[in-house]
Design a protein around this nucleic acid. Structure first.
Length: 401
DNA sequence: GATTCGTGGAA
DNA sequence: TTTCCAAGAAT
């Protein structure tokens, strides 16, 4: 078997023996060199599901503190289902892709309603939860139910592109279909091997078959790898040409009254859907306001575009916050910056609020330029306990049965 | 099939 | 600094 490669796409007549070798070597390597101490590894379907959603397009290191806070507040799917969406968004604040949090909350309620006291049985049923697609459903089912279904995340795509020396863009639909077929053909025969095998595919991509500088000298399946034999492992998968990122200018209003600032809930669709944010500078709360200068200019880089945010401070001509609150309804709140930090807010606003109250927050790292002040780089430490107390106080008594 | 959706790590 | 992209899914 040594030195042979697995044909791509795999042919049934030749695949069995080679696939068995691939799976056996990967499983053995995972048990010796893979990751075994991640906090979601185990038999709890809730923790596996939660982690898989958090890990979508997000690195393990980033997820770890969010996962810890989340399971501390919501130890079970029943606790998550009973919570208000606002508290879920608050705990998700800073993690990004907030549709995941909205889907997670809806999925928890569907879960307890349709599978009370248990959980979805198999990938087919896991995929019925909102926010759980084919790859996530397969990962959960492989770990929890030992089902023989393949995953195809970014790591596995890269591993397979190298294993078969695939030159095409793995994101193209036609190529992706062949990669799914290949991933299925490589699965181990014994269902009991599925957890170690699936974790092994993830670990291999994350620890050995990395995007840059792959460690082929440590790879348990290097002898089966076409790209390694051709000496092009580091060049695969081919990167696609990317269009230049456009810029967009946004103006936010810092409407301040008696040390509190107005926030409005963003629409559920679109960027930062459902989160609390400063209102646009030209949409003042009820009452008469006067501009009091620019507070900050923020540059926020996203994958597909760059946001240039200008924040202007406004002060009331006449103090009457209570009337404003009644006039602007439930989707607007006037809170101190400290209180606002306990809500689900976009990361650039989180940085601005943290600076306003000089309260460190977790994962608020980056650059911010204050007018009249030299450009400063700040990195703040973790104050999880205090933040959690704020969250608990803000949402106390608001849970639904 | 192509877009949209966040943030931060790494080179 | 810039660029790529990570345990992808929904539209």
């Amino acid at each position: 078997m040594t030195g042979q490669e697995i044909p791509f796409p795999p042919e049934n007549s030749r695949i069995d023996g080679l696939a068995a070798t691939f799976a056996a070597r990967l499983i053995d390597w995972q048990r010796r060199c893979g990751r075994h101490d991640l906090p979601w590894q185990g038999s709890d379907p809730y923790r596996v599901w939660l982690s898989e959603v958090m890990l979508q397009q997000t690195q393990v290191r980033t997820v770890l503190p969010y996962f810890a806070r989340f399971v501390a507040r919501f130890p079970t799917v029943e606790a998550l289902a009973a919570a208000p969406l606002d508290e879920v968004l608050a705990l998700w604040s800073g993690l990004g892709y907030y549709a995941r949090a909205r889907h997670l909350h809806a999925a928890a309620r569907l879960w307890v309603a349709r599978w009370p006291g248990t959980c979805p049985q198999g990938a087919q049923e896991w995929a019925q939860l909102p926010g759980v697609g084919r790859s996530t459903a397969a990962a959960i089912a492989a770990f929890v139910q030992r089902e023989r279904v393949p995953i195809l995340d970014g790591n596995v795509q890269r591993v397979l592109c190298r294993l078969f020396a695939v030159e095409e863009d793995p994101r193209a639909a036609a190529t992706a279909r062949r990669l799914w077929d290949a991933a299925h053909a490589l699965l181990p025969r014994d269902p009991d091997d599925m957890p170690a095998y699936t974790q092994g595919m993830m670990d291999l991509g994350a620890l050995v078959c990395t995007r840059t500088r792959p460690r082929c000298d440590l790879c348990p399946v290097a002898e089966l790898c076409a790209a390694h034999r051709l000496g092009i492992a580091a060049q695969l998968p081919r990167k696609r040409a990317r269009a230049p990122v456009p810029e967009q200018d946004v103006r936010w209003g810092w409407y301040e009254e008696d040390g509190a600032v107005w926030l409005v809930r963003r629409a559920p669709q679109g960027i930062w859907g459902g989160l609390w944010c400063l209102p646009p500078a030209d949409e003042a709360p009820p009452g008469r306001w006067r501009a009091a200068g620019e507070i900050a200019r923020l540059t926020h880089r996203l994958t597909h575009f760059t946001l240039n945010i200008t924040v202007t401070r406004y002060l009331p001509e006449t103090p009457r916050a209570a009337e404003h609150a009644a006039a602007w309804g439930e989707e607007a709140r006037c809170l101190t910056p400290h209180e606002a930090l306990a809500l689900g807010v976009p990361q650039p606003l989180r940085r601005l609020l943290a600076q306003a109250v000089d309260v460190p927050i977790e994962h608020a790292k980056g650059n911010m330029r204050r007018l009249g002040v030299a450009k400063g780089k700040f990195e703040v430490s973790e104050r999880i306990d205090e933040h959690d107390e704020d969250v608990a106080r803000l949402f106390r008594g608001k849970e639904k049965p």
